[in-house]
């Protein structure tokens, strides 16, 4: 993409991201490892509410939900609940920020990532390479796919240093519908 196209794309994404107060979406996650016959597939629902409440709720093939909220992680594993502080875990904090940013599209941070942009037939792909050494050990590259009609994220691909990856496809997305706070209490 030319500099002008990149600037225009970033502006469009930021304009959409700014208007987002909530996101509710279904997701399907594919964990790909070269030595497996099939990708490992899990799926569920994701909720995001400004400024930084996020819930991933896996429904298939198991019930597991994880909430990121106010520096805390709340987990409900088949009814077994626990809570953890992100506070002292810098890498985890960064991964968390990255997940929230990926979903809302708000992560074009030049300090944290080397970023490149690509225009494809029906979408845009943003490729982010972490700069932080600790993060780089776990995540080699992040690819965000944006719909070219509404500039929201439709796919997140996290590529590990081994080249195995996790691909998360977001579908049936609803923007700015009301989400009760209780959704994030787990």
């Amino acid at each position: 993409m030319t500099d002008a196209e990149t600037t225009s794309f970033k502006q469009s994404v930021n304009a959409v991201a700014k208007k987002i107060t909530t996101i509710t979406t279904d997701f399907v996650q594919y964990k790909h490892m070269d030595f497996l016959a099939k990708d490992i597939e899990t799926s569920g629902k994701m909720y995001f509410k400004e400024p930084n409440s996020l819930k991933w709720q896996y429904k298939k093939p198991y019930n597991y939900s994880i909430v990121f909220k106010n520096g805390k992680i709340l987990i409900d594993d088949e009814g077994k609940k626990s809570s953890h502080d992100i506070g002292n875990n810098k890498t985890f904090g960064k991964i968390n920020k990255l997940i929230v940013g990926s979903v809302s599209g708000n992560m074009f941070d030049d300090k944290e990532f080397t970023i490149s942009f690509f225009k494809m037939k029906t979408n845009y792909i943003t490729r982010l390479l972490p700069k932080d050494a600790a993060l780089k050990k776990y995540i080699k590259q992040i690819e965000l796919t944006f719909d070219d009609s509404d500039f929201t994220v439709t796919q997140v691909k996290l590529i590990e240093s081994s080249d195995d990856y996790t691909r998360i496809v977001l579908k049936n997305k609803t923007l700015n519908a009301k989400i009760e706070d209780s959704v994030f209490s787990n």
Binding site: M33, I40, W56, Y58, I95, L158
Partner: peptide, 22 residues
């Protein structure tokens, strides 16, 4: 937890988070 027999003598064992991070 993932296990796979990759040849006659050897298994590969991988443990990931729910998000898929190894």
């Amino acid at each position: 937890f993932i296990a796979k027999k990759i040849n006659e003598t050897t298994h590969r064992i991988v443990f990931t988070t729910e998000f898929g991070n190894t």
